[in-house]
Design a protein around this nucleic acid. Structure first.
Length: 426
RNA sequence: GUGGCCGUAGCUCAAUGGUAGAGUCCCGGAUUGUGAUUCCGGUUGUUGUGGGUUCGAGUCCCAUCGGUCACCCCA
């Protein structure tokens, strides 16, 4: 084992048995995104490091210690494997003037990279689907994105995913709150632990999340952001809540909900489950109206979410009956001089007619070929032996119940196969 | 990044410091051409890796790699 190479820590192979579930997950999610009017976009996995530093924020954990960054000496560039998708998506929208002719709804999917200690539901390479709506300032699209998710969970067969919501106000409101918050923290610096002190100026909102009881005491008396929210912010949030209520989507307000990326404002939300231990957030997002300008574009409002595929697939795994069995229509076996060519061309003809056909390869006794046919999960076994070869026939045997073995002329197989298959499945 | 627990056959797991095992899977056989059930037989391995203690280490110690859980963080 030690001499053989291993996958990079926190970066996982997905084996064929699991890929069946992954592909069905992807098919459901992608169809759902398209159905809601979101259009696919694809961005590179590698971007300039500066993009993430500017978008996500210098003081965030992601930028401080989780990015895979390196210097590409060939071009003298600082590069980073993307830790999330929103920054790239906004960069692409600015670069290609995507909102020139009006607002846009976009989605993307693919791997993201963060150098964290791996844990269940937390990997160094992990897949996300993200949806972003650019150019819509109103609360309706915030609500649309949230309701969208609410409708997806049942399609994936998932229950017990609850919605947490918060309003973190505008940049100006947060700046005023933040100034007062820092003052408050400074006044009680003696009670803060090292972590809280470090964050006090860099990311004071995070201090409120501390689990240290002494720090909590300080946090409990800290000025609340809610007291700094102006009419516009409150109205926006009311608008979101009204549409959620109209859609029958339940939520809890979590005033502690602070997203770990600096670009958010107004609406932030997380979809959370208790079934995954400490990594319970299955989808998270919010509004980021300042991000376009921060990245050098015109002022364009944005709102979006990203969902963690590994976590959702893990939840789907708990309902094994939803895992689709991929079975071929037929398994073709052959034995005897001259049978291979006949079997081979029959398999070819059936595939050209649209059927899923596995051709036995590698020889073996008749018995072992039958075993492989059964193990393949195929509905039918097609047998070309010496008898069939002489008679110009193929034997068709149903492997999953349904009907006796029959022989049919091999020129008729392609034409009659669909009917035979249907009968075998009945 | 910090701490706890764990690493034995492809998989799931046994083995008081004293000869590494079971189930499953896989392969072969049970009248010459028929699977899934049943019966019989067979192969599974540098016990994650590298050191150390010991007459003797899967077992004890150290390191390292990996997994897992919690902290942290987030999807």
């Amino acid at each position: 084992m030690s001499k053989s190479l291993q996958a990079i820590r926190g970066m996982n192979d997905v084996l064929p048995d699991d890929m069946a579930l992954w592909r069905s997950f992807s098919a459901i999610v992608e169809a759902w995104l398209e159905r809601w009017g979101y259009r696919a976009i694809r961005m590179p996995l590698v971007e300039n490091t500066a993009l993430f530093r500017r978008a996500i924020g210098e003081a965030t954990d992601i930028v401080e210690k989780e990015m895979y960054s390196w210097r590409d000496e060939l071009n003298a560039e600082e590069l980073t494997l993307r830790p999330e998708g929103t920054a790239s998506c906004v960069r692409a929208a600015i670069e290609h003037s995507l909102v020139y002719d009006g607002p846009k709804r976009l989605w993307y999917g693919g791997p993201m990279y963060r150098h964290e200690r791996p844990q269940k539901g937390r990997y160094r390479e992990f897949y996300q689907y993200g949806a972003e709506a650019f150019g819509f300032p109103g609360p309706d699209v915030d609500a649309e994105l949230i309701v969208m998710c609410a409708r997806l969970w049942p399609e994936l067969g998932l229950k017990g995913i609850r919605l947490e919501l918060n309003n973190i106000g505008s940049a100006e409101e947060r700046a005023r709150h933040r100034a007062d918050l820092v003052k408050h923290l400074e006044a009680h610096e003696g009670k803060l632990d090292a972590d809280a002190k470090r964050r006090m100026h860099a990311n004071p909102l995070r201090v409120l999340d501390s689990k240290n009881p002494l720090v909590q005491e300080v946090a409990a008396q800290a000025p609340l952001l809610a007291g700094y929210l102006g009419e516009a912010s409150l109205a926006h949030f009311e608008g979101v809540k009204k549409l959620l209520a109209a859609s029958g989507v339940e939520f809890t307000i979590n005033p502690r909900l602070v997203r770990g990326l600096d670009y958010y404002n107004l609406t932030v939300f997380e979809w959370v489950t208790d079934a995954l231990g400490a990594q319970g957030t299955v989808c998270g997002g919010g509004r980021y109206d300042g991000l376009f300008e921060q990245l050098g574009g015109k002022a364009v409002p944005g709102v979006g979410f990203a969902m963690g595929c590994e976590r959702l697939v893990a939840l789907m795994k708990e309902n094994p009956d939803r895992i689709p069995a991929a079975r071929p229509d037929a398994y073709v076996l052959h034995q005897g001089e001259g049978t291979l060519e006949v079997a081979f061309t029959i398999a070819d003809a059936l595939r050209r007619a649209g059927h899923a056909v596995v051709m036995h390869a590698g020889g073996g006794s008749f018995k072992s070929q039958m075993k492989k046919a059964d193990a393949s999960g195929a509905w039918l076994a097609l047998i070309v032996g010496e008898d069939e070869l002489r008679a110009g026939d193929v034997s068709v045997k149903a492997l999953r119940g349904g009907g006796d073995q029959q022989r049919i002329g091999r020129v008729r197989v392609a034409g009659e196969f669909a009917a035979i298959l249907e009968k075998a499945k009945a």
